[in-house]
């Protein structure tokens, strides 16, 4: 039971932090709202890390946590947490190029109900970055995988301006032979992606928490910092608890998957649910503690609040993961 980071992992995390602080600023996030190409320069840096998708989840997720901290837009999550693992599972020839960051891709799986399980719906939903990646891997009900180039897409706007989600119309006459994939293989891919998203959310929650804690120390009312009021202190203590337990649960889930441990299915739902609790609490209490300034468009807080709620509702909400967990526990 060793939760310590190796020196290499610490180095990876610190490198990511430095890189992202410089390349993924909030002014870029704002420019990206109207022009997704604003995130292209970021990808030229991040593509060098696409190979993380071929290694242990613990390393990959450590990196994703940092991406969540800056609410990074662009194809990194879709390519490394969805597309590459799918290619790897069906042994696709594009895998080396994806791991080298030379091609980008995404996965279209969820149907009309927005849930990530195999189906034959003609329109796939909540597909990240579908219009700007090189490949869209469509998963059908059998399940089987078909790679499409430039399928018809429709942007579906959500509160989250940092992650672009699409409907993709799946043309039955799609190019190439469908590649079969086992249901349990598909389940693993969805679980990895779920924990990956949970890792990102922990980063976003930490950003919201850090901003709020700093503000509580600096904002003075009644001649004292608002962080000296017990009502504010106790909110921050509760935010910190949810953040800490989510961070650990996500790390545990990644370790459980890396080790093929029997606990990995439960750990996945625990991780996403805990990350959801941490991120949404940090968002709600975070804006509350900021007072009026947090309610403005000018203040950066909302960028991360948006990311937090967008992520909570993607790949299964906390309540949905509780239901899935209950299936594991009660049947």
């Amino acid at each position: 039971m060793d939760f310590t980071l190796s020196e290499d992992q610490e180095l990876l995390r610190d490198t990511a932090r430095a890189l992202l602080a410089a390349e993924c600023t909030t002014s870029m996030l704002r420019a990206h709202i109207d022009d997704p190409a604003a995130a292209d320069p970021l990808w030229t840096h991040l593509r060098e890390y696409a190979g993380l998708a071929g290694g242990p989840l613990t390393d990959h997720h450590l990196f994703l946590e940092e991406l969540g901290y800056v609410a990074a837009p662009g194809p990194f999550f879709a390519t490394t947490a969805l597309f590459a693992p799918l290619l790897g599972t069906v042994d696709h020839e594009l895998l080396p190029a994806a791991l080298a960051g030379e091609v980008t891709g995404t996965v279209a799986l969820a149907g009309t109900d927005g849930r990530w399980r195999a189906n034959d719906d003609p329109v796939k939903t909540f597909v990240p970055e579908a219009d700007r990646v090189d490949w869209v891997a469509v998963v059908s009900g059998e399940p089987a995988v078909t790679l499409l180039r430039n399928p018809p897409t429709r942007l579906v706007r959500t509160v989250d301006t940092t992650r672009r989600l699409f409907e993709v119309t799946v043309d039955a006459s799609g190019s190439g032979e469908p590649l079969p994939i086992l249901p349990e293989e598909l389940e693993s891919i969805v679980e990895w992606a779920t924990v990956a998203l949970a890792a990102e959310m922990v980063g976003t929650a930490r950003r919201l928490f850090d901003m709020t804690l700093a503000y509580a120390k600096e904002r003075v009312q009644f001649d004292v910092p608002i962080g000296s009021f017990q009502a504010v202190q106790h909110k921050l203590a509760d935010m910190a608890l949810d953040l800490e337990r989510a961070t650990s649960a996500v790390q545990f889930a990644a370790m459980a998957h890396d080790a093929g441990d029997n606990d990995r299915h439960r750990a996945t739902h625990v991780a996403k649910a805990a990350a959801g609790a941490a991120a949404t609490r940090a968002a709600k209490d975070g804006i509350h503690i900021h007072g009026g300034i947090g309610y403005t468009w000018e203040h950066d807080l909302h960028l991360f609040i948006r990311r937090a709620y967008g992520s909570e509702h993607w790949l299964g909400t906390r309540a949905e993961h509780h239901d899935l967990l209950a299936e594991e526990l009660l049947i």
Binding site: F3, E244, S248, L329
Partner: peptide, 21 residues
């Protein structure tokens, strides 16, 4: 009841992970 039980489980499991950490 199922959701509440799952929530209790989630919190207990995440606290164990936090303890390890």
């Amino acid at each position: 009841v199922r959701r509440r039980l799952a929530e209790m489980y989630e919190r207990a499991a995440s606290l164990r992970a936090l303890g390890y950490k």
